[in-house]
Write a protein that binds this DNA or RNA. Structure first.
Lengths: 192, 192, 192, 192
DNA sequence: CATGAATGAGCCTTCATTCAT
DNA sequence: AATGAATGAAGGCTCATTCAT
């Protein structure tokens, strides 16, 4: 059961709306449907027809990212090295979070507007959980973390990077923070 | 030069307002001065007289915590063990962050309403920086983090704990996350 | 390039708003957009959509008068008799000022909300200046007044008429005051 | 029946309040009793005790001027030259109006807060009326103006001077406008 | 008398959402 | 379908006035 195909002009409007919304989110402007409509040179009604709420629109902006992350996650599950698999996944995740402004909001939200979003978040949690489990089974990851912790931790790292004073350095900062988290703030003597 | 002492009734109202505000913040309600006034059974004007903006009120709620943290930080500077000093400081910090809801907002805010808040945040950053430096000099902490990173990281941990689904477990979760950050997600073979 | 034509209902509301505003101004009530909305039986938002500020609305009420005055002024420039031309212009001006309450406020305001208002005031000043200059060149008007003085003087006369106790006699009073100004309070012996 | 003598400190406060009010009026700030209290370093209550309304305070600021004007007026009545007497009176009047900001408001107000103000305004109107009448009887002033017109005309001249763009030139402008009014805008051939 | 804290009506403005065109 | 005008609840803030201390 696929959704009925959209009329050509409707599709064009849809794209316009999403594009404008992404732009707004990126520049930190709070997402208001009236505002989106104005910038997209469309009537408010049109925007409401396509997206019943601002959250729905925001999720629509964020979902491609989530799709990509999920795909990469599934891919990572096939990796032989459980440690690398998890690490890669985490790196991609925070990169996405600090790159796409919409993502952090959507990921941290306790409730979703679109079913698809819920699915994606579920998938991501599940994939993350599996990657974590494997790594733990391989003894390369501490045992006191569950799959429930992965998303919060990634959100936290991304948030930390955003709080940091210099916006231009966000990606680099996020990397540094992730590395710190992976390797630990404290230094222990390595194996001889 | 201390501020003139407040009249008894005014002081009572002041307390009432701050108490109501703390309660609101704790239950996650966005802080609105009108709302505070209503709940405190006071005229709006009274609230505005004491706190010109919602931010000022929020900071007033948060500042005692900041004071305490700063005091503990200064104390920690006298600790012989640089590693323990830093760790203790960090533990207290995230504990405060997840316990007092007002704190995380204030800490993450790029700009302050009250001068005292700015002072406190500055002190905290400075103390944290010194603790970090000592620990680094003692070789117990990784070298790629600066004093600029401490606050963001603590905010991130607290945020992560808040994102985590179960609110009741927040303190415990925050502890776990901090430990993970300190020791590292990844396990490395310790010295024989 | 003309402005897009207004929708029929919107136009009706626009008219209603302006009508109510004119009425309020006429009865001396300070112009408040909420008040206008209530009396026009419209939502506040509607009023704000049409007129972003009370000043904009006030100028919209006043501008037709200004347009008329400007037109008459241009007309007066074609008159052969420079004295009569100026006098006619001045008479029309104060008549308008005491008739349309909105006018005096707008004319005396140092700054405008609508570009059109600025244009009109500029035109009026310019036309008045030319009429004055011609009359002066013809030797029928005292030499110590510049085009900068015309508007203030007219505002002054209108104000004087409004201050006068009997409101019903305003037009007549204004006429009398203008005549006094033109001919002089003091009587001098005419030519033999 | 004189008013009970004021206590020394009360008198000092009274002075302070009036001084602050005059200052506020002069700088164009709208007169608010709270504001006055703050600037005078007094409680609001104190200000209210002395002046029940802002209008009363404003009139208190303006009245010395009115007193002076009235005195000069009475004086002028003794002048032999009726024309000069009137002219002098008018000159003083507009000078006062443009010099003391409080005056124009009080003079133009249709109703007064203090009985003394009403008395003074009445005196002024009466004196002006008499001066006008004498001048008219001497044939040096046009006949179509009554004593009711003098105050409005002076208010108008002052208002005109205030509307004029350059504030620094107000006194000079007012003089010019008064002269124009006295001698007439239009030039007529003098006696051979 | 003096004080200044408290009051709350009232104005301003925004924005999510609906619905006539 | 698309449009965008209309709505009005809701929140922000000020300020004249009162009254407990």
């Amino acid at each position: 059961m696929t959704t009925a195909p959209m009329r050509k002009d409707a599709a064009r409007n849809w794209e316009r709306i999403v594009a404008v919304a992404r732009q707004l989110v990126d520049e930190g402007t709070p997402l208001q449907l009236n505002d989106v409509a104005r910038r997209a040179q469309l009537g408010v009604g049109t925007v409401y027809r396509h997206f019943p709420t601002a959250e729905a629109l925001l999720e629509t902006v964020a979902n491609p990212c989530l799709e990509t992350l999920a795909a990469h996650g599934e891919q990572a599950l096939t990796d032989d090295d459980p440690g690398r698999a998890l690490t890669d996944f985490l790196i991609r995740t925070i990169e996405a979070q600090v790159t796409e402004a919409a993502l952090s909001t959507v990921t941290a939200a306790p409730t979703d507007a679109l079913p698809r979003t819920t699915e994606l978040k579920q998938t991501l949690r599940s994939v993350g959980g599996q990657l974590l489990e494997r790594a733990r089974d391989a003894g390369v990851v501490r045992a006191d973390l569950t799959s429930e912790d992965l998303v919060p931790l990634m959100c936290g790292i991304a948030y930390a990077a955003n709080v940091h004073s210099v916006p231009a350095a966000r990606v680099e900062t996020a990397h540094r923070y992730l590395t710190a988290l992976l390797e630990g703030l404290c230094i222990r003597k390595g194996p001889t």
